[in-house]
Design a protein around this nucleic acid. Structure first.
Length: 256
DNA sequence: GTCCAGGATACTC
DNA sequence: GAGTATCATGGA
């Protein structure tokens, strides 16, 4: 797999750093460093990187759809991660009406202010820590109007919101639950389900996905409608395909 | 100055 | 149910 493409450039996670020791991130007080070409033996990491998925088989699922086949072939090293749901939730609340560079800087600022430092890296704040954060302090970090969303959602999670049960729930039920959180609409909910809960059919529709669904696949309608159509059209691994198409559109690999 | 970014919310109809 | 103004921030 392509570590830089997957961990940094693909805009599915926003907290990996690249340095001389490789690609690093801190999880629950544990520092993780990955170097290209080095085997990954740790079971938790293999799961996080979803290393045991057969991507050749996945490519074959979409070989008859020209735009899909082209996007998949263009980025053979791209992988969709299995992030902890809390990580996906916080990251994509911050992503609303925001750009990738700034999302990354905000996740880092939050982690520096409220997370634990390990080996020069910062883990994401615990829900309890974020729930107790003063709104003014979050705004000072630059999160803007998302500050009350973060605090309220962190309180819900700290208060027992079943983040870890979403994986086992039917898509509709999990999606409905997620959108009851502040700062979580249809799109952010789909990102949490896809990147953090193993709901590989979830098809997040942002500005880029809306563009390519309309231009490459001749779909129309609202983003909610587009998401439903795409989820049905592209099947149980549609969300993974979505990541390739999203990246192809965003970097201009395929013109939209 | 305007427009845009992996949108959500409150409001109107 | 579908449209619309508003929302912080920073870069282009």
């Amino acid at each position: 797999m392509d570590l830089r493409l997957t961990l940094i450039d693909s805009a599915q996670c926003f907290r990996w750093a690249e340095g001389e020791r490789g690609f690093g991130a801190a999880f629950d007080g544990r520092a993780v460093w990955l170097k290209p070409g080095e085997p990954v033996l740790d079971p938790w990491l293999r799961n996080y990187l979803d290393l045991d998925r057969d991507y050749e088989a996945l490519f074959r699922e979409y070989e008859l759809i020209p735009a899909a086949a082209r996007a998949l072939a263009a980025f053979p090293g791209l992988r969709v991660l299995r992030q902890p749901p809390w990580e996906a939730l916080i990251s994509f609340i911050l992503s609303a009406n925001n750009n990738v560079r700034r999302i990354r800087s905000l996740v880092l600022a939050l982690s520096k202010a409220f997370g634990r430092e390990v080996d020069g890296l910062f883990s994401l704040p615990e829900p309890e820590k974020l729930a107790a954060a003063p709104e003014g302090m979050l705004r000072a970090l630059g999160v803007g109007y998302r500050a009350p969303f973060l605090i309220d959602t962190a309180r819900r999670v700290a208060d027992g919101f079943p983040l870890d049960k979403l994986r086992e729930m039917p898509y509709e039920e999990a999606h409905r639950l997620l959108t009851s959180l502040k700062g979580v609409g249809d799109k952010v909910a789909d990102c949490v389900l896809l990147f953090g809960c193993g709901h590989w059919d979830a098809f997040p529709v942002d500005v880029w996905v809306e563009r390519f669904l309309k231009s490459w696949f001749h779909e129309t309608g609202t983003r909610r409608h587009l998401a439903a159509i795409a989820r049905q059209r592209f099947g149980p691994h549609g969300g993974i395909l979505q990541q390739f198409l999203f990246h192809a559109a965003r970097v201009g690999e395929i013109a939209v």
